[in-house]
Measured scan of single mutants.
Amino acid sequence: HNLTITQGKLFFHYNPKLCLSEIHKMEEVSGTKGRQERNDIALKTNGDQASCENELLKFSYIRTSFDKILLRWEPYWPPDFRDLLGFMLFYKEAPYQNVTEFDGQDACGSNSWTVVDIDPPLRSNDPKSQNHPGWLMRGLKPWTQYAIFVKTLVTFSDERRTYGAKSDIIYVQTDATNPSVPLDPISVSNSSSQIILKWKPPSDPNGNITHYLVFWERQAEDSELFELDYCLKGLKLPSRTWSPPFESEDSQKHNQSEYEDSAGECCSCPKTDSQILKELEESSFRKTFEDYLHNVVFVPRKTSSGTGAEDPRPSRKRRSLGDVGNVTVAVPTVAAFPNTSSTSVPTSPEEHRPFEKVVNKESLVISGLRHFTGYRIELQACNQDTPEERCSVAAYVSARTMPEAKADDIVGPVTHEIFENNVVHLMWQEPKEPNGLIVLYEVSYRRYGDEELHLCVSRKHFALERGCRLRGLSPGNYSVRIRATSLAGNGSWTEPTYFYVTDYLDVPSNIA
């Protein structure tokens, strides 16, 4: 807008934040220059609390790290170098490059900038070799853009010569660093050979998330399962459950009422301010606690030095998902009996873990797994792929695949051998790939016309006998059925096997 004052003059007093240069501009645009008398524009009460600059400061050096910015700028000295009290560095987070010096300023003089007072450097006698002032900004957020400017702080001049310097606002972004852990990993099994893994992005990506790394490792069953005799009275049979499938998407929606109208769909109840505040506090606490764990609990591995020492970490090797089922080394339970199943799973520490690289999504279907087997899954978020990966501390989750139908069934015939004193040795093959492992066998036998009897055969007993022995049988026709019990439950009964026990007292003698 054009402003013209045809008559009258300007009068400025007691404006401590208004620089004289701005008042002189007002004289020019209003056409009143030359009308004012000496005392109409006070030299001592206008701009006496402001830094009124008329020179431009330029930054000469900028260096960044993930949490620091090192700045240096060209030296500046007023005509009387004693008038320079120091520099004021202003900075704040700036997602967009549209910041002005006066953003967030209120009537009390406060604003949204963080201000650092910096002492002037030592003055050199040689004007050509003056030290460049600077400042190291610490405690910054990774991968965050900051708006920065600097200006001088000078003393009051009796001659009211307006001098000083100020830089333009520059924008500097800190470097990326390792992201925080992925949030809320959930693993479920939808079949006997697959596990579905879902997660949420890290709360602090500290860069642009480029991919996720998912490692999985087959877990050995508890050692007590191999040692305890679950045929003993009072000892509860062990059981394991597989990871249940995901709930429906509708039930997972946030901010939804727990109660549904019987007449149909209901609208979600909005969260109160107290609920939102509580969630923010919980989120802040979780982030602080995660940072504490990362800094205190997890110790970084030592990389190899120039002395030739090897990095103890196993090298990563990509495998196809079809090879995942046989990740671990199978060892027989008892070496003397080769027909026992290889369900003991000690994992070799030198073995390469299978892994998958996930790009542009937060889910993965891990296939080719062994049925009813526990897996430990390790999830890392990465925001750099080359020249070397920059990934987060791992988040861990466990899951067990679903049982395989008929995996616990005894394959092959049940054979028998009759000894003296009416002892019958029953023999059968253990299931080759049971659900988890076989903890015991149930032997059901009966003599024709009598009630059915049951015998429990422990895992250890089966390994020693290759089956079991029935003792003290009365003469007669017998039928026997056997079924295995694994961590997933009972298998199917075998087809009945028949044998006849004679009275050993009636056996004919070869003595003449």
Rank of each mutant, 00 (worst) to 15 (best):
G368L: 06
K287P: 10
K302Y: 11
I438K: 01
P475I: 07
N422V: 03
P244E: 12
R301G: 07
I276H: 13
V414R: 01
W242K: 04
T497R: 15
H461M: 11
R446W: 04
Q384R: 07
E495P: 08
F226H: 13
R471A: 14
K271R: 11
D291Y: 12
E495N: 10
E378T: 09
R471Q: 13
V393W: 13
S342C: 02
R471P: 08
Q384E: 15
R370I: 14
L232I: 14
N208W: 12
S492N: 02
G234D: 11
S203R: 10
P387T: 14
F355V: 11
Y478E: 00
E310P: 05
E265T: 13
V414P: 06
D385A: 14
E265D: 13
V297C: 04
H425W: 05
K460H: 08
D229R: 02
S248R: 11
H416G: 13
A336R: 14
R469W: 09
V443Y: 01
T241A: 12
T494M: 08
N360P: 10
S444Y: 14
S251P: 13
N435L: 00
G308W: 07
L505V: 07
Y478F: 05
P354A: 06
E465F: 10
L487C: 12
V414L: 08
E465C: 07
R390F: 06
T303N: 14
H416T: 10
G374C: 15
F298S: 07
L213M: 14
L440Q: 15
A463N: 13
S251V: 11
V331K: 06
D409A: 05
G306I: 13
G374M: 05
R447S: 07
K460E: 08
D506Q: 15
T494K: 03
G325M: 10
Y478S: 00
I209K: 13
Q380I: 15
E378L: 05
N422T: 10
L280S: 06
M427S: 12
N339R: 12
E351L: 15
Q275Y: 07
G491F: 02
T288K: 15
R316S: 14
V345H: 05
V296H: 09
D503P: 15
G489C: 02
S492H: 08
E404W: 12
R319H: 13
K236F: 13
S239W: 15
P332Y: 05
S251L: 12
S398F: 03
E404G: 11
H425T: 08
L237A: 06
E388V: 09
K432V: 07
L369W: 01
M402Y: 15
S262V: 14
L232F: 13
E388A: 06
I482T: 01
F246I: 11
F298L: 03
R370S: 14
V334I: 14
N421D: 05
R218L: 13
S492T: 08
V501S: 02
Q380M: 09
V327Q: 13
K233Y: 11
E442A: 05
K287G: 07
S305T: 10
S315P: 10
C266R: 09
S492A: 11
S492R: 02
H416D: 01
P332F: 15
R316E: 10
S243V: 07
R471I: 10
R390C: 12
E260G: 03
Y212K: 00
P338S: 08
H416C: 10
S315D: 08
L473H: 01
R459V: 15
D503Y: 10
P475M: 08
A399N: 03
E451K: 05
V358F: 06
D261H: 10
E260T: 12
E452N: 04
Y441H: 02
F226A: 13
P387N: 11
S474M: 06
V507Y: 05
G325V: 12
D222N: 13
D229T: 08
R466Q: 06
K278M: 05
Y230L: 10
C468A: 06
V329G: 12
F337Q: 11
C269I: 13
E465W: 06
P496G: 01
V507Q: 14
N383Y: 02
N477R: 09
Y375C: 02
S479I: 06
G374T: 12
V297R: 11
H461Q: 10
P338T: 10
L379P: 01
P245W: 13
P238Q: 12
